[in-house]
Design a binder for these strands. Structure first.
Lengths: 231, 231
DNA sequence: AAATGTGAAGTTGTTCACAGCT
DNA sequence: AGCTGTGAACAACTTCACATTT
């Protein structure tokens, strides 16, 4: 599998489509786009593995991921050299290395805020767990309201959020609340200790420097498509 | 060469972070990232307008959009000059100009394929219509299956798709089918005349050059967040 | 012979600095 | 005085070309 998209990250003050967050780790600084592609490579490698393929060339893997082979090799070069010249890469080993680099080895707990249409769908979306994330709880201003659908996660009121986040050491939140309240909700999240936000509201969130926001804006994706397909 | 089977062939440029489709219109070639940002500016302008603000400086608008003011001005420069020096931009006028440039003035019909969890949520998602898109119909392999939720759009069987697309002149499709069938569905869509696809499956689709695919991959978004927020 | 790894070249995108209007 | 518009400088990213290894 693979295929990433591009909803780029917006940090207030830096801009759309910009670069690395300031984070000055000792590790080599890896460009954001490379990180994105590493996720894609990971999914392609998973498919190769499922099909019993043990070795792959940069050419073949790049093709599956939709990039040039030189780019793939450059991307890998940021954090090591794993290939065998004349042969290619060991699928399992490369998977493990990229996985380590991305830090996706462990299961990450995530909360979701805003149990409306979209939130409800995401709560039962299978795609997350398979990739190492688990939405462990949901929060909503009206937790008791009847939903169209049964979900396995509990829905709490907003007032329970700070304590829950601290108690469970949650660092990431998916935010699917209406645009009118999203900044307020964000403030609460940040205050509670959340440092990564996946935001579905069509607005640029104001957050401190050490908090990262990834925006997913479906209307913009459509608009973008519509621009490029017209004559 | 046992690998051939799952290597998705894709057109150069498909996938993540790619560039302009080859489309060489007479119009100035505007970078993809700029187009993305234009959509954001548009939404900021709409909010300014709602708040009764008639004039805005590049500085202020850029701040709302999360970019630098020079970038905003450069973006606009690709297709005209609309500001008044010493004063700024007329909100209504700039909105209109960007809207024209993006071609979002008219309402675009869209179909959705794959009425599962996510598809169902998107069908009742309010965010689209407000931005000029209308999902006019849905298609699914099991159109009669009972859904958890009432929606206003009709759900047709896959066999009805080609005729419908032609009859209604639909150009864009949102694809929320399982990864196992997404390529097959894509082939049908392309064959039916669809040229813009918003794909939620975690795989790189194989499409002809004149078809554009935007991928939305939520697991990758989360993975990306998780990478950048760790210490 | 086949395929990786990488410096160098090339391309694209962003920011600066300031000229030029209003 | 304030703010836009833009060439030039800069930075990031991609691709090329090829030396290197198996």
């Amino acid at each position: 599998m693979a295929a990433g998209v591009l909803m780029e990250v917006l940090r207030p003050g830096a801009g759309l489509l910009n670069f690395l967050p300031l984070k000055k780790s000792e590790r080599p600084v890896i460009p954001r786009k490379t990180i994105y592609r590493l996720s894609i490579y990971l999914r392609c490698l998973a498919r190769l593995h499922e099909n019993g393929i043990g070795t792959v060339s940069s050419e073949a893997l790049a093709k599956a991921a939709g990039v040039k082979s030189t780019q793939l090799r450059k991307d890998l070069a940021y954090f090591g050299t794993f290939g065998t010249r004349g042969l290619g890469y060991d699928v399992t080993e490369l998977f493990k290395k990229i996985s380590e680099e991305l830090g996706t080895s462990r299961l990450q707990p995530v909360i979701l805020v805003g149990v409306g249409n979209l939130g409800l769908a995401l709560l039962s979306y299978r795609g997350f767990e398979k990739e190492g994330f688990e939405i462990i709880a949901a929060f909503d201003a009206e937790p008791r309201r009847k939903r169209d659908k049964e979900i396995k996660q509990p829905i709490h009121g907003m007032e329970a959020l700070p304590e829950f986040v601290e108690a469970h050491g949650v660092k990431m939140a998916i935010v699917t609340v209406p645009v009118a309240v999203v900044q307020e909700v964000t403030n609460l999240l940040v205050h509670s200790g959340i440092t990564g936000i996946l935001n579905f509201a069509p607005i640029v969130l104001d957050v401190p420097e050490d908090v990262m926001v990834n925006n997913v804006n479906l209307a913009i994706e459509l608009e973008n498509l519509s621009y490029f397909i017209r004559e």
